[in-house]
Each structure stands twice: as structure tokens, then as C-alpha cells.
Design a protein around this nucleic acid. Structure first.
Lengths: 202, 202
DNA sequence: ACGAAAACATACAATGTGTATGCGAATGAA
DNA sequence: TTCATTCGCATACACATTGTATGTTTTCGT
């Protein structure tokens, strides 16, 4: 147990402070939101100085982007862990949906990923992030679940809007709405898509 | 044509400056976003002082709320104007959907209502606003379009998620995606719901 | 060992937010 | 009409925060 900071490799130092900043940022951004969280507060929690922050990140939004990125990856991993076991595409969709609900129940994630994220970074960046982390899974799963080969653009659109429906559902659930009703409606929706695709081949 | 400000009733003055502030705010918030728009800039555009702003509004967010409110009402009116002519509930839904796309194409509305609005005012407030201005229409229309009597909570959930799908569609269209594909998928979705409800009476 | 570069720390300038205070115009009672 | 009061607004201020510029201390490569 060394008292002061013993010899440390540069890479380790960087890694450590970046991690401290991202963790402290995640906690504060999640609790109070991006706008209401100041950099002095963040660095105090991370036990570094503002100098360190602006050395590693371009600005406050850049740190926030790192936080959102990490959070999106965490969500993606949790979902993937639950859906690999599924046998059929439809089962995978159901498992993924359930896992998404669970994952988004973690405190602060709604604010980070669905509220402040789009506003601070823009819809395009958010879309890019969750496309890269695992949002694409939905499109693939949906495509596999649909019996008839569907137009690619339409499948993409469908997956995108379905994802929006999921988001709204977790938001509503978080706000105290009847979560079960949302889940049932969601199944309703997915079934409806599959049914409609069956009898309406393009 | 009076040169200076001739005798004016207090009510008229209030109305005038409030309107000037809301209009200037709407323009700037729409163009640069809430965070990047400063009150000095707003009052300059509105040709009043910051004193006037803080006399009429609690803070910057309060002015923003007024802007969002007005914008939501405008959207609601445009939709209502297009859907009153519809004969059947399903037609009304289709007309309303089309009108929503058109209405949200007005510059800045996506940012105001779907990006900054939720982040600044919170999802609850936004939901409340569009529930009061016309978002409830969708629930009513959907409820009428569904053949079998559905659970109330489920219908609400369905309407809510459908609304989210609409939002995502206009966002995607604005970002340059294939708007037609989204619209077709949307019809697909609605048809799917109706179909599924038909053959799956509760 | 030693110059260079990276990782920070400190100090500073600029800007913006909300508030407190002051002043003239409108209102309403006498 | 007068006059006190309230309302609408302007100016000045205190405070906080952001990004940058500049200095200092570690580590790295040779």
C-alpha cells in the first residue's frame, strides 16, 4: 500500500483518470442531468482537476459522449447475454425485448440515453452509437422473424420505429405507467407486423 | 401611424412584449437549440431588455415552455384541420398521420418538440402538453378504429407507442432517410394492429 | 542521464444567468 | 383631475461556469 502515487506508466495514468472522470460524470449526469452538472462538480467527485478533464476531453459534451457510449455498450451487452440462448428469431426478439426493459431499468439510463443524449449530442450521433453497439440487432432479428422477404428500406424503417416504441415504453414504465400493458401492446404490435407481412407479400 | 409608443393599455403592452419574446425565442431556439441560445440574444431580437424577459417569465426554461406550448398548439391545429373531413376512423387516422408529417416538416419543430423539449422540460411535461393540445386524438382515433373493445390501458399504451413511432419517422425523414419507406411501414404497422386485434379478441 | 513530450495543475478572460433596485407609465379610487 | 399604488420594464450587480493559456511535474525514449 503506497501512500503517494508511486511510479505509474502513462497509459495507466490516462486510463485511471479517464475512468474516474467518466464514472463521476455518469453518476452526476444521471442524477441531475447534463445542463445542471458543472465541470467543477465532476472533477471534485473524480478527485482530479479541471485541467485533467480538458486534457482528455475536448469539452463537457465530449465527456458526456464518452459516458453515453459506455452506457450504450453496457445495455447492449446485457441484451446480448439474454438473447444468445434463444432458438428462433421470434424468441430472440422476445428475449431481447425483455432484456431491454430490464437493462433500461438501471437508474439514470433513461435520462442518459433517451433524454439528454439526443439533445446534447444530436439524434444522428445517438443513432450511430446504438447502431454500433447493438441497435442493429433489432433490425437483423426482425428481418429474420419476418416470413416474406421485405424491402430493405422498409425493414430498416420498421426496426427503427419499433425501437422508438420500445424507448417510449420504458419511459412510460419509468413514469409509473402500467408496464405490463405496454409489454402486452408491444407483443401485439410485433405479432401484428408478422401477421400483416404474412398475408401481404410484396 | 404614431411615431413613438402612444398611450397603450397595460394588457396590450404585456401581450405585445410576450409575443415578441416568444417569437424571437422560437426562431433562435429552433435554429441553435436551447442551450446555445442566450437570453441577451433573445431580447435583442425581440427588441426588449432582459428585465422584460424576467418580468414575464420565471427563467429561460419558462420562456422555452411557452414557445413549445405555442408550437404544439400549431401542430395540433394543422392536424385537426386535415382530419375533420375524414369519414371513418381509419380514414381519420390516415389523414392525421399525413398531416402530422406535413406539420412536423416546418423548420425547427423537430428540435423544439422532439429534441430540446423533452430534455429541457422533461418527458412528463411534454407528454402533458401534447396530450392537452391534441395528442389524445390519436388514442381516440385508434380506439375507434379497433374493431374489438380493447383494454383501456393497452389502448393507451398502443397509442403512446404509435405516437413514438411517428416521431421517430419524422426524425428519420428529416435526417434524410427514405420517407416513403417509413410511411409505408407505418401503414403496415397500423394495419398489423387492426388485423391482430380482429383475430385476437380479448 | 537528459531532452522531449505527455499529464496534469493553476490562473485568467469571457460570457451568461438570475436578482435586486430604480424609474416612468398606466390604473383606479376619491 | 389628482394622487397613491401597482405594473411594466430598464439598469446594475453578484455569482457561477466554460474554455483557454500558461506553468509545473512526471514519464518516455535514447
Amino acid at each position: 500500500m503506497q501512500e503517494k502515487s508511486t511510479r505509474q506508466t502513462n497509459e495507466a495514468r490516462t486510463e485511471a483518470t479517464r475512468h474516474a472522470l467518466i464514472s463521476a460524470g455518469r453518476a452526476l449526469f444521471a442524477e441531475k442531468g447534463f445542463a445542471e452538472t458543472g465541470t467543477p462538480e465532476i472533477v471534485k467527485a473524480a478527485m482530479v482537476t479541471r485541467g485533467a478533464l480538458y486534457h482528455h476531453f475536448r469539452d463537457k459534451a465530449d465527456l458526456f459522449a464518452a459516458v453515453v457510449q459506455r452506457e450504450a455498450e453496457a445495455v447492449a451487452h446485457e441484451i446480448e447475454a439474454q438473447s444468445v440462448a434463444a432458438a428462433t428469431p421470434v424468441e430472440a426478439l422476445a428475449a431481447g425485448a425483455s432484456a431491454y426493459f430490464d437493462a433500461m431499468a438501471a437508474p439514470g439510463r433513461i435520462r442518459l440515453l433517451l433524454l439528454d443524449g439526443p439533445a446534447v449530442l444530436g439524434h444522428a450521433v445517438i443513432r450511430e452509437i446504438d447502431q454500433a453497439t447493438g441497435g442493429g440487432e433489432l433490425r437483423i432479428g426482425l428481418s429474420a422473424a419476418l416470413p416474406t422477404a421485405m424491402n430493405g428500406a422498409e425493414t430498416t424503417a420498421l426496426a427503427d420505429m419499433l425501437s422508438a416504441a420500445f424507448d417510449r415504453a420504458v419511459i412510460a414504465a419509468d413514469a409509473g405507467a402500467d408496464a405490463a400493458a405496454y409489454k402486452r401492446s408491444l407483443h401485439h404490435l410485433i405479432n401484428g407486423i408478422v401477421e400483416a407481412a404474412k398475408k401481404n407479400p410484396r
